[in-house]
Amino acid sequence: MMTTHTDVLPTEGGLGNTPLLAVDNLHVEFSTRQGVVKAVNGVSYDLYQGETLAVLGESGSGKSVTAQAIMGILDMPPARIPHGEIRFRGTDMLKLTDEARSQIRGQRIAMIFQDALSALNPVFTVGWQIGEMFRVHRGMSKRDAQKKAIELMDRVRIPAAKQRVHDYPHQFSGGMRQRIMIAMSIALDPEVLIADEPTTALDVTVQAQIMELLAELQRESNMGLILITHDLGVVADVADKIAVMYGGRIVEKALVHDVYRTPAHPYSKGLLDSIPRVDLKGQELYAIKGLPPNLLAMPPGCAFNPRCPYRQDNCVSEAPPLYEISHTRSSACHYWREVLDGSHE
């Protein structure tokens, strides 16, 4: 009964086409003094044109590291990618030369960072920084780049862009700074935009505005958007698909409504139950027990087993594969049926 409505294709772009961006069995390790930290362990996801994928997970789940691997901005060493492919329009970017890679970076795949104040250079005006994209990659003159910068600032709805183009980052409010960061990232019309916790540093009302802006820009340009966040509330309205990460693995992949209605992994269920809800006011808020796993000493079997209310004996002995529930949905839990049934109540 749960599969009937999930059978619809994700969005335009469809499943038949090659994905715009495909992460395939990606592993990322960091060598540290204490040993090798396996930050990402076989993550796979696809992103189609015009689609928004939300990657959800707590700190240390590997969601940002995956994004950095896609961008090619991991410091290697200490990072290492022992297995995996990241295909952009069919070509594996990990096999490209640095030169070819930097042609993609910023122009075809761009990224927005969490804290726009520290992500903007404090010693240059915002106009200069936005204009830099055009001067470096498009060889524009200073004057034309400036004009483009003002256009972009208008496009991300910064009031009085013409005057403010000469201001420095610290003269803007948090929300406006994030808009400038967004303006820089969309300057060259990228095909994929990765937003790494774009709203975490902002207050709630501004969060909504930024999400709305991102959704709008995406509709205008039909780019693929990867939204990395730890906040389920933020992604509900804008995302099409969701990938929930835990301990460097994807534990659930689904269309966003399905996860909200009927989570199929105990971790996603725990995350949903820990969102404060108006109708449950007065009751104690649910919290997932225990702590996120130590990446240096992962628990045997399923990484979530020490915190899982559905745990059985085989959860400790054998790591669950990503079970396919329907062709838009999968869960890395031996007992996904029980979890699904549990969430119907």
Binding site: M71, I73, S102, R105, G106, Q107, A110, M111, F113, D115, S118, A119, L120, N121, P122, E132, M133, V136, H137, M181, M184, S185, L188
Partner: peptide, 14 residues
């Protein structure tokens, strides 16, 4: 190691 340098790199600066 400042974010703006990482950000500049992510936006294609050589």
């Amino acid at each position: 190691s400042q974010d703006y340098v990482v950000a500049a790199r992510a936006l294609g600066a050589g």
